[in-house]
Amino acid sequence: MSIDRRKFLKMAGLTALGLSGTGAYELLKPGALEASHGHDAHGSGHGSEAAEDKNRTRWAMLIDMTRCEAADVEKASHACHHAHNVPDMENPKHAIKWLWGETYEGTFPDSHNEYQAHELEHKTFPLMCNHCDKPPCVRVCPTQATFRRPDGIVAMDYHRCIGCRFCMAACPYGSRSFNFVDPRTALKFEDLNKKFPTRYPGAVEKCNFCVERLADGLQPACVEAVPHVFTFGNLADPDSNVRKILRERTSLRRKLELGTKPSVFYLV
């Protein structure tokens, strides 16, 4: 059977359309877009207003600023950075910070009350990733290297990260750090936590709410280091420790007007 060029091109075009059609369907069908929220297509990754449910988990961190001093922030930061082999880079431009201290003004920049209570105004606030319920970083990541787990933790998959740093631009809290150089140049083998890997140049990293410790039934490193300041618990369970505290204490969250719904609460 001989076929002329025109007929061939028509057939080839229709085939290509058909193939890409199924591909497009897979991509855009209902439920496929939830893929960026991790392995959960049930929709429970979408924020927790719907779920006042003991069986759901949304991890949250409470930080009691009335009992937090600068030395506590140092201690927590050291515990976190040691547990996760976070290097102390010489060049401040290449700094990698999972948990660090910031002034009151720096923590709440756009709502800075210059007539604030004296005690609060001079505190050092411990800052970390807020593990937002509606994280902008997850929205922008082109490879789903950062994704929101069903338990509320915004996780990083370093294997998939291409280092485009879009998430760093998107994060309104400055929680993310990039490995500009090999982090191992600033780490000594003897000081490492051998149970946890390092990262490599070209990947973005941040606080991970100690997922690896949670898997072993342990509390996050900062909570273990400074228990009188840090409290960790399940926000979705109305009877949990954190919910009880939040009902009684005044709390602040950073940049609430941006709609990110952060999970880190500062008790004042």
């Binding site: 780490l187 149970k195 990262r199």
Partner: peptide
């Protein structure tokens, strides 16, 4: 394999 760029050999003396 680039595993070892991040994962540590607990018995290795170097990074």
């Amino acid at each position: 394999p680039y595993c070892w760029d991040c994962h540590i050999d607990p018995n290795g003396g170097k990074l």
